[in-house]
């Protein structure tokens, strides 16, 4: 069929001009499959190789810090006479003698320190301390911070204003200085408490330094978390499903718990995961200055501090805790970054 004005370039088939079936049209339409928020997030997280490696490293370190010491032949405070200042895999004269007698002596994988204590064991114990501090401190911050922030954000108005004023003041206080101050001065009342009041003996074992750290974290460090939670709540508050819940007669507590906090969980998880390395950072800093756990309990920071003197002769004593603390902090940071990229896609550039 031709026309002087127009010409089609190929041969036509008449049947092609019949109306198309609905099914034929559907096959042309491509729809992406939908997934839930969590599935989507985890899928993205798994693709992030760096985050997955970090997760693996963290798990390994956890095992090493909490499980291995129970099976290890040495303890952290055990001072072995004659085995002072050994290098990596070195044996002392006495140990060699014992080996000749037929006894199997477990090697000092990282040598020993000036008091004959096995460095590897101390390294593992120090890691345990760091991980415990990180997690407990972050848990404290999470609970205090999110509760405070949620209340301030939800109720708004005067309540919010007063609460946030307090946060502003705490924020401007130079925290490190106060931590140092508190760590120095809390020792005495805590020691008194341990000595005089029954049921508080654990203070001595844990060490007043460590407790001061927790006290300080509870007093000062939750403000960042409260700000984040508050701004989340403020955004979510305006969402329609909150208004709907209110219309159905839900009370404030229920709304905060069921709707607002659950939707903030993504942000909470990410912030907490990133808070852990920050807490560990602070703990190691304080231990380095001599304000953390008390001897003979090792901390990665105090081990590094004690090792500086012998840096030329026994570098391992410095490098081992240094590498370990860096590894822990780095892994948590990368995992936190990965979680954020996976669950908060709006932040992705």
């Amino acid at each position: 069929m031709e026309n002087r004005k127009n010409a089609i370039s190929f041969h036509l088939d008449v049947s092609d001009f019949l109306p198309a079936e609905e099914s034929e049209k559907q096959s042309m339409v491509v729809m992406r499959e939908s997934t839930s928020f969590w599935k989507d997030g985890f899928r993205r997280l798994k693709k992030n190789k760096l985050a997955m490696i970090s997760l693996f490293v963290i798990i390994v370190i956890f095992i090493m810090a909490f499980i291995v010491p129970s099976f290890y032949p040495y303890t952290y405070e055990q001072q072995i006479r004659g085995s002072e200042n050994l290098g990596i895999l070195e044996y002392s004269a006495q140990e060699k003698a014992r080996m000749e007698d037929g006894e199997s002596v477990f090697p000092h994988l990282l040598g020993t320190d000036s008091l004959g204590r096995d460095t590897m064991t101390r390294l593992l114990m120090g890691s345990r301390i760091s991980l415990l501090v990180g997690i407990i401190a972050s848990a404290i911050i999470l609970v205090i911070g999110s509760t405070y922030g949620a209340i301030a954000g939800y109720f708004g108005g005067k309540v919010d204003m007063i609460m946030m004023r307090l946060v502003d003041v705490i924020y401007t206080v130079p925290d490190i200085l106060i931590i140092i101050l508190l760590s120095v001065t809390l020792k005495y009342p805590l020691k008194d408490l341990a000595a005089k009041v029954p049921g508080f003996q654990w203070i001595d074992t844990v060490g007043v330094g460590l407790i001061s750290i927790f006290v300080v974290f509870s007093l000062l460090y939750w403000v960042g978390m409260s700000r984040i939670v508050r701004s989340q709540i403020l955004t979510l508050k305006e969402q329609d499903y909150v208004v709907a819940a209110k219309a159905l007669g839900a009370g404030s507590g229920r709304i905060i718990r069921k709707h607002l906090l659950t939707n903030s969980i993504g942000t909470l998880i990410v912030t907490t995961t990133l808070q852990i390395p920050a807490s560990i950072f602070t703990e190691s800093f304080l231990s380095f200055l001599g304000l953390g756990v008390s001897a003979p309990m090792p901390s990665l920071g105090s081990m590094a501090s004690q090792a500086i003197g012998g840096i030329s002769s026994y570098p391992v004593r410095l490098l081992a805790p240094a590498v370990m603390i860096s590894l822990i902090i780095l892994s948590f940071n990368l995992l936190g970054d990965g979680l954020r990229d996976a669950f908060d896609p709006k932040l992705k550039n």
Binding site: P277, S284, F288, A304, A307, A322, I325, L330
Partner: peptide, 9 residues
């Protein structure tokens, strides 16, 4: 990520 005292040492 690496603490200051680690970098310094």
């Amino acid at each position: 990520a690496v603490p200051g005292f680690v970098v310094a040492t």
